[in-house]
Write a protein that binds this DNA or RNA. Structure first.
Length: 146
RNA sequence: ACUGCAAACCGAGCUAUCGUCCCGGUAAAACGGGGAGGAAAGUCCGGACAGUACAGGGCAAUGCACCGGUGAAGAGCCGGGUGAUGAAGCAAUUCGUCAACAGAAAGUGCCACAGAAAAUAACCGCCCUGCCACAAGCGGGGUAAGGGUGAAAAUGUGAGGUAAGAGCUCACAGUUAAAAAUGGCAACAUUUUUUCCGGGUAAACCUUGCGUGCUGAAAUGCCACAUAUACCAUCUUUUGAGAACGGCCCGUUCCAGCCUGUUCUUUUAGAGCAGGGGGAUGGAGGGUAGGCAGAUGGAUUCUGCAGUGCAAAUUGCAGAACAGAUAAAUGAUAGCUGCAUCUUUAUGAUGUUACAGAAUCCGGCUUACAGGUUUGCAGAUUUU
RNA sequence: AAGCCUGUAGCCCAACGGAAGAGGCAAUAGUUUUAGAAACUAUUAAGUGUGUGUUCGAAUCACACCAGGCUUA
């Protein structure tokens, strides 16, 4: 009985995930070019979403990638590399799980967007808080580029 | 058994789903394998490696400083010596801890306050003596035995000696340097002889000895893209000036010594003048910032056995392990076991937490560290 | 990653190895004023980032840590 219960739960979970199948985060979906990042900070628009500051800019390019994003944490509030790595991983994970809606919207309009998140909070967050704030930021972006 | 300190070691494990970096695999997938530490940290030492056109020498700069061993090397490690210091002991001695541990007798500087005086010591005192009838007073000289100081006062004690004194002389003790003998590879120790006794400071300048060329993976090489053989200043272009040798000098080596016109000598060619062009250095800018190599497996680390050595370490054999990103992978969620805390003692609840994240690579050092294990030392109590 | 610099009252800063430390702003109290500001007078506030050493003596010299800042293209 006990094992059976868990087996069912597990299979349900996997089915839900496989239907979407888009929770990927490959090398191509990250913003890596130094040139593009500098242009984004210089010319792009930005807004604050609680503990996150978001830079965003449409770009022209031949590659067919609707969304590229990067994450940064300043050394002012987090002196230890461990903490900075932790925050970057949490934001990246939250974005990975929630970006699909925006991605498909952009793909439908044939637009390409650069994004950069900067963590501006002063304390080490937990995953739930980061997830919530990232979702809010992504919703705001959907309204802008509708 | 408990507490504290120190040292060494460990730094939870397994499973599932999603995701990620590298390698293999594939036409593309699927799939398989690997993916953070003892300090990855601080950047404090030492190397490897790369560039700089390394002949060689000197100066400057900079580092080190008892001896031997170890190792690629070191300001590391191991062993020893000397000195200081703590504990135990009647003592001999034993057991620890620490040391930038060459030179102050090459020279220069500094030594506040106090004190006569702080380094060529005469302020008081003591002694001799001149002026003077004597005293007092003034002057000349000798003298470091005595003088409330100070961190430090001119080796200490005793005797002789003297006008008074003085290592002036002697004895003992201490101390500097040298020689010899014995022990030791050596530092050094012990003994004997001669000699010195002229404060401290070299983590003040410095002297002596030894070592080091400088720069640093954003090094460097190649490919691609882009641009500007541009601009300004100085120097130079026929014999005495320039450049390189990554501070300077000697020295060595290298480059340039071109073109046009004109004048003179005149076969070529050479010299002078003018102009052009070239070169070097500096200034101020412009472009690119993509890819590949460097780049991860080598003085490698660990384990076992055997050998050498007091030890650090090392030799042989066997086995195992070793990430490779570049706005930068190593993450998220769930469950089980283990562990900790609380309440209850079938169990339940909460937490899984320390210091901390590779960035060219190695060897050390230093610092941080929840909890656990082991060893050593100290403490007080309990039991036998 | 590589390399360099700085820590002194609440703040800004000075001090040749020598009384344990100078100023300015601020603070507190007083004078002045009906009250306040300004001005004037007085007072308080450091033991020199931490530790160890060298020295008779350390803010100063040396070493090791801690904290903060800067440079590179």
């Amino acid at each position: 009985m006990f094992y059976n219960f868990f087996y069912n739960r597990r299979t349900d979970h996997t089915i839900v995930l496989t239907t979407h199948q888009q929770y990927t985060l490959g090398k191509e979906e990250r913003l890596k070019s130094r040139k593009q990042i500098e242009r984004l900070f210089k010319e792009g628009q930005s807004f604050n979403s609680g503990i996150l500051k978001v830079f965003h800019q449409l770009k022209e390019g031949s590659e067919n990638i609707p969304l590229q994003f990067g994450v940064g944490v300043g050394t002012r509030h987090f002196k230890k590399a461990v903490d900075r790595n932790r925050i970057k991983r949490l934001v990246r994970e939250a974005c990975r799980l929630q970006k699909n809606e925006l991605q498909s919207l952009l793909a439908a309009q044939n637009k390409q967007l650069n994004l950069f998140f900067i963590y501006t909070g002063k304390e080490l967050p937990d995953y739930e808080l980061v997830s919530e704030k990232t979702a809010a930021a992504l919703n705001k972006l959907m309204n802008i580029y509708k």
